[in-house]
Computed example of a mutant assay.
Amino acid sequence: MTHPSEGKAWIHFDTMFPAFAQETHNIRLGLCTDEFCPNSSYGSAYSCWPVFIMIYNLPPWLSFKHEYMQIPLLIPGKKNPGQNIDVFLQPLVDELKMLFTDGIETYDAYRKNNFQMRAVLLWTVSDFPAYAMLSSWSSHGKLACLYCSNKSGSFWLSEGRKPCCFDCHRKHLPNRHKFTKDQINFMKNKKVKGGVPIP
């Protein structure tokens, strides 16, 4: 893959919304956020969360140039916004919804005419703590994975009271693999059944 347009998310979106895909003026966006300490010392009493929006319709060498990045939101505070991040993001979400459904009249300097530009937020890019805040899903504990949820196979350690994912990787092996039936070198008296999960 040399460009996000070759990725599954982009192609799937184009099949779901063919009218949007046919209009070359429409743009696809990505959102990214993470904590930033202006005093350059983590653990200080102040931090802020910039929210970046990148345009992915551009060639790969231009997508991440500062000229094409926008900061529609800067969340200041003494600590991270946590689950309250949705309060800060609500105006941006409303604007993105409007850009997708109605679009906005925009001037094309090359063709010298106006057109109705629409935009879609295809994905977010973040580390696991920011991912937990953006999705309102706890990235700790037994249900840490948003996709696997309760099918992850994780369990609580009896002594440490911590969640553990040991032995969960065997489900990705073929059904006839010798490790799926091994009840000695992995979890005691436990075989893996059900086959490889759907990606």
Rank of each mutant, 00 (worst) to 15 (best):
H25Y: 13
N185C: 08
N26F: 02
L122Q: 01
V196H: 06
A21T: 05
D182S: 07
S63R: 04
D34P: 02
T15G: 10
K181R: 13
P174W: 04
C145E: 03
I184R: 12
G30N: 10
M98Y: 04
I198D: 06
S5G: 07
Y68T: 00
E159M: 10
S136G: 13
L99K: 14
I104G: 08
K151E: 12
E6W: 05
D34Q: 03
N189Q: 08
K8P: 08
T124H: 06
L74H: 02
S154A: 15
K142F: 05
P76Q: 06
T24R: 12
P76A: 03
G30S: 15
G153R: 03
F179L: 15
I198Q: 07
A21L: 07
A119T: 07
P163H: 09
W123G: 04
M1L: 12
P174N: 10
K190L: 14
F155I: 08
E23P: 08
C148G: 09
E95H: 13
C145M: 08
R118C: 06
M1V: 13
I55E: 00
S41F: 10
S138F: 04
K8E: 09
N185V: 05
F128C: 11
A130F: 01
F166Q: 14
D182E: 13
C145K: 04
F100T: 03
H140I: 11
N57H: 07
N26W: 02
S158Y: 03
D86W: 05
L173N: 02
C32H: 01
S135H: 13
A19L: 13
L89D: 00
N114Q: 09
N113F: 05
Y46V: 13
V192P: 01
S136V: 07
H3S: 10
R28Q: 06
A21G: 07
P72Q: 02
I55L: 08
H140A: 09
D102H: 12
K188E: 14
I75F: 01
F64G: 02
I184V: 15
M98E: 10
M16P: 06
D34N: 05
W49A: 00
L29I: 02
C168G: 14
A130M: 12
S135D: 09
L62G: 04
G103D: 04
L173H: 04
R170L: 15
V192A: 02
Y46S: 13
Y42H: 09
V93F: 11
V192I: 15
E159N: 11
M187D: 10
G153K: 05
M16F: 02
H172F: 15
M69P: 00
Y131V: 03
F88S: 03
K79N: 10
P72R: 00
C164P: 01
K190M: 12
V87K: 15
Q22C: 09
T33W: 00
P59W: 05
I184P: 02
R28N: 09
L58R: 00
F36P: 01
W137I: 14
S154I: 12
P129A: 06
K162R: 14
T180P: 03
